[in-house]
Write a protein that binds this DNA or RNA. Structure first.
Length: 509
RNA sequence: GAUCUCGUAGCUCAGCUGGUAGAGCACAACACUUUUAAUGUUGGGGUCUUGGGUUCGAAUCCCAACGGGAUCACCA
């Protein structure tokens, strides 16, 4: 099988051969002693500090080449930004041999190649901080031409690469060519670091629990199944890690957390990828009121860390992460947005309400699912500013402790921001007998045809029987939080490598 | 999974109601040696996603497949 090469790719391979003929290794092995980054030079260089920049070594990818006869202006991009190199023939070729300049730099170097130079920093006639090169080294030859994006002084972009398919499939090229993309992912890491710091400051313990689970528990979702050959058993990629973290609370950890990569075998769209990240944590001797306070503090801290303010612009709206967040019960939320008081209704009445509100409903849906349907159809997207929706009906929360004073409800909240659920938390159910009954209720739902009802996890029940202290736990959708904090409208823009259909290879023999 | 929509050069796009492809950037050569998306001249590069159909003739119309996006459904 042979690769179908474009004209430009063939030219680059010919250049590769010419470089080798000149005894220049296009992929040299030795380390390259980089001393400075572009952005730091641009920030710190001045008349006063210029002594510190009299001998710098930088490396990066060529993003622009300007041939000016005996002088080349080359812009390279390193991990922090772009800087201009001033490459003069007689400076990089001191002796009689001018091959490096006349051949290599003039003809064999391309956009996209990775080079390094040493030299001193100065300011050009046009006022741009640049590096006057004393030596020039090719570090990597690029064989595939990058899309060429140009920017002018005002920041206008020409020929911007916007094709989502190209950007997601070839994220490496997207990152080279679209600097804001890289910035989004740096923000994502910053956000996760801030969350980790917040938890560690409070003595929470980060743990790892199984991704391959014999029983996929802790959430209502369809799992991916795989098979373990040696044990000859099915294993599931986790849909949540909740039940394992709770086992650790039983074991005596007071506060555990995990950034959990979860997998759900469901549809993909702007807010769903088959694998995604949830931060879950569980804290002993706490309840959901404490959890609300801690959660709003965390969110406020994230906003401050990333934006330096609690006011964050998302699309056209500004979201305020200033604590405290609003709280409203789910029944009040439904009443507020539909006029129906569903708090006392049974299944039949709920189905009737669904019909009146034009919501699809059928017999397989239990009371919990019906209420959830009404809420998510008619109320959910109305909550733009951070709001805790609290006190859910017991039927839709099989892992949650019954409410301390309200009959038929559980101590649970969901945090809604910009019309989307960002977090889900409870006072955890720790009564093993109650938990068994809830699982059994889930089994009945499964028999009625609910594909997402939970399995009974006997080992988890055994752990609860040893006794789990009163505990509050939460799950926070990291990808969606990241979308919010970086103002992205698609989950694919906060995942480095979003799931895509495989490309069809046309060059197979 | 359903519906709508898009698929032309390495990239961004043009190509009217069907008459067998065009621009800018990128690339190559030459000239010019004066930096700032943009020096000039010349040139090379496309089985117009794929496969069928209608037609004398299809990038253009129809059908299907493949891939992307949007909306909906399921869900976080």
């Amino acid at each position: 099988m042979s690769q179908q090469l474009s004209e430009q790719e063939i030219i680059r391979r010919n250049k590769l051969d010419k470089l080798k003929a000149l005894n220049i290794n296009p992929y040299p092995a030795p380390l390259y002693p980089v001393t400075h980054y572009s952005a730091d030079i641009k920030k710190l260089f001045s008349e006063e500090t210029k002594e510190q920049f009299s001998n710098v070594c930088v490396a990066g990818r060529i993003m622009s080449l300007t041939d000016r006869g005996k002088v080349f202006f080359i812009k390279i991009q390193d991990s922090k930004g772009i800087i201009q190199l001033y490459v003069r023939k007689d400076d990089v070729c001191e002796g009689e041999d001018k091959t490096l300049f006349d051949e290599v730099i003039k003809h064999l170097i391309d956009l996209g190649d990775i080079i390094g130079v040493t030299g001193f920093v100065f300011i050009t006639r046009t006022g741009e901080i640049s590096i006057h090169a004393k030596s020039f080294t090719l570090l990597t030859k690029s064989l595939k031409p990058l899309p060429v994006v140009k920017r002018d002084e005002e920041g206008n972009v020409y020929d911007e690469v916007t094709d989502p398919e190209f950007r997601y499939r070839q994220r490496y090229a997207d990152l080279i060519v679209n600097p804001e993309v890289k910035n989004t992912f740096l923000k994502r890491t910053q956000m996760i670091n801030a969350m980790r710091a917040f938890l560690n400051e409070r003595s929470a313990v980060e743990v790892d629990t199984p991704v391959l689970q014999p029983i996929p528990g802790g959430a209502a979702a369809r799992p991916f199944v795989t098979h373990h050959n040696a044990l000859d058993i099915p294993l599931y990629l986790r849909i949540a890690n909740e039940l394992y973290l709770k086992r650790l609370i039983v074991g005596g950890f007071d506060w555990v957390y995990e950034f959990s990569r979860d997998f759900r075998n469901e549809g993909m769209d702007r807010t769903h990828n088959p694998e995604f990240t949830i931060l879950e944590w569980y804290t002993a001797y706490k309840d959901y009121f404490w959890m609300m306070e801690t959660t709003e503090q965390l969110f406020e801290k994230i906003a401050l860390t990333l934006h330096g303010t609690t006011e964050v612009k998302v699309g056209e709206t500004t979201i305020s992460f200033k604590t405290p967040f609003k709280r409203i019960t789910i029944y009040d939320a439904i009443k507020e947005h539909t006029g129906f008081d569903v708090s006392e209704m049974d299944e039949a009445k709920l189905i009737d309400v669904c019909k009146q509100l034009n919501i699809e409903a059928d017999e397989t849906m239990g009371k919990g699912k019906l209420i959830d349907a009404i809420f998510s159809e008619k109320a959910e997207d109305k909550f733009i500013q951070p709001t805790f929706i609290i006190d859910y009906p017991v039927e839709m929360s099989p892992l949650t402790k019954k409410h301390r004073s309200k009959q038929g409800l559980v101590e649970r909240f969901e945090l809604m921001i910009n019309g989307k659920e960002l977090a889900n938390a409870y006072s955890e159910l720790n009564d093993p007998i109650d938990q068994r009954e809830r699982f059994e209720e889930q089994s009945r739902l499964m028999e009625r045809g609910d594909e997402e009802a939970m399995f009974i996890d006997e080992d988890f029940l055994r752990a609860l029987e040893y006794g789990m202290p009163p505990t509050s736990g939460i799950g926070i959708g990291i990808d969606r939080l990241c979308m919010l904090m970086t103002n992205q409208s698609s989950i694919q823009d906060v995942l480095l490598f979003p799931q895509m259909r495989p490309e069809r290879r046309t060059d197979e023999a």
